[in-house]
Amino acid sequence: MASAVLRRLVHSAISLAGISFVVFVLIRAAPGDPVLLHVGGVGSRGASPELLAAMREELRLDEPVAVQYLAWLGDAVRLDFGDSFTERKPVAQLVGEKLPGTLLLLFVSLALALAIGLPLGMLNARFAGGSGDVASGFAATAIYSIPTFWLALLLLQVFAIRFNLLPLFGMPSEDLPRGLGRMVELARHMVLPVVTLAAGQIAFLSRFVRASMLDARGRDYMRTARAKGLSEWAAIRRHGLRNTIPPLVSMLSVAVPVLLSACVVVERIFRWEGIGSLFVEAVVSRDYPVVMALTLLTAVLSLAAGSIADLVHLTIDPRLRTEGDA
């Protein structure tokens, strides 16, 4: 298993190099001249051809793609992603400013999904086939099918506009002093985006937990648990749950790329400052350095989630350690 983790890390590194190269090449083949967009963004109309040529040279856009890529890769491993074309500051700084917003949404919605999805799945498994189970199975499929942006717009409509319970969108103002008041304000702004993100995951996790519980139910250790006099619920809670954790850890790591995808739309609708909304802006304005950095970052986050899941498996499941590295 340890060597499997190592192999996975090597694969991840190869994958990262591969995806960064593909994106790098493709994005340069795209229509839309970044230099012209750049000049347009700065606002100087009718820039001279000499100026444009000078800018191309400065941004290394006149060199062969392979040379450009190697130069970019050399800088990237030192976390130097160059300057944003549109924002006029280092990409690393720009991304660093936006990343916490996205990570906050990501972790809180994942925690919420787990807090509701796990017990719900256990209950559904305990009363499998009952009307509650059937109803929540139907609800789960329905919720999982709701388009993210539609759910977001509906929640906004009901809770922010119709009943005015929560802020419409955005983040707490910078002027607000740090402290409890700011935390409460942040929490109020987070409710709707987090619920939007978590809804689909709650639906998915509850069905997943239910299925693995039902799978566990017929196993010998569950029969033993029942034979020694545990109630069905206690057997599920103590023995079934424990055996559901390893696949659940894998599922949670798979949820990371799914949630990151959803963040693109959610951040845009709720005017939340994060890497999702930054990515859309960068794609539209052909801000190559930002697109490259974010592509790499989301790939790293997703692959890291997978590697963390591996490590958690190693830690919580002693069988994986004693089996040897076959």
Binding site: G18, I27, V284, L294, A299
Partner: peptide, 24 residues
């Protein structure tokens, strides 16, 4: 297999947006 693994572990929508940026 690497391409499959990569595409399945990468945020689907980021990938789609990146590719969408290539075309009008």
């Amino acid at each position: 297999s690497r391409a499959i693994e990569l595409a399945l572990s990468f945020p689907f929508f980021f990938l789609a947006l990146g590719v969408a940026a290539l075309f009008e």
